[in-house]
């Protein structure tokens, strides 16, 4: 809720780095990226990662666990721009209507 003048740091200074995480931008999305493991190079051998590198919203999660690779989207933040799908060299990402 909006705070009073004496409940906030002076001059608009924001003292919690990266607190924009509290603002979910996933609601902007009209198209949703859907990922298939079969052809993905990250899943296959932990390489490529272009979708993660280019994603403007840090909404791609490349996870390595016990020598295995997993892939996730953070739909809280994905705006559905489709850059990941467009740049994927193996066609492993498709954009679908929300």
């Amino acid at each position: 809720m909006s705070k009073r003048f004496d409940e906030i740091p002076m001059a608009g200074i924001i003292i919690e780095p990266g607190n924009a995480m509290e603002y979910k931008t996933g609601g902007w999305r009209a198209m949703r990226p859907v990922h298939t493991d079969e052809t993905c190079l990250w899943i296959k051998n932990g390489t490529c990662g272009l979708c993660w590198i280019y994603c403007p919203d840090n909404a791609v999660r490349l996870i390595e666990e016990n020598g295995k690779y997993r892939y996730e989207y953070d739909y809280d933040y994905c705006k559905g721009c489709g850059i990941c799908a467009n740049q994927c060299p193996t066609g492993s990402i498709k954009m679908e209507s929300e």
Partner: peptide, 27 residues
């Protein structure tokens, strides 16, 4: 009071609109 400090990163001079600008002027 508050400084630009890599150990304690703050954002100075953000965009504050109708919901907060006035409070900073009050301060």
């Amino acid at each position: 009071a508050i400084a630009l400090d890599p150990d304690n990163p703050v954002t100075m001079g953000p965009l504050a609109l109708t919901d907060y600008y006035f409070e900073f002027k009050e301060q």
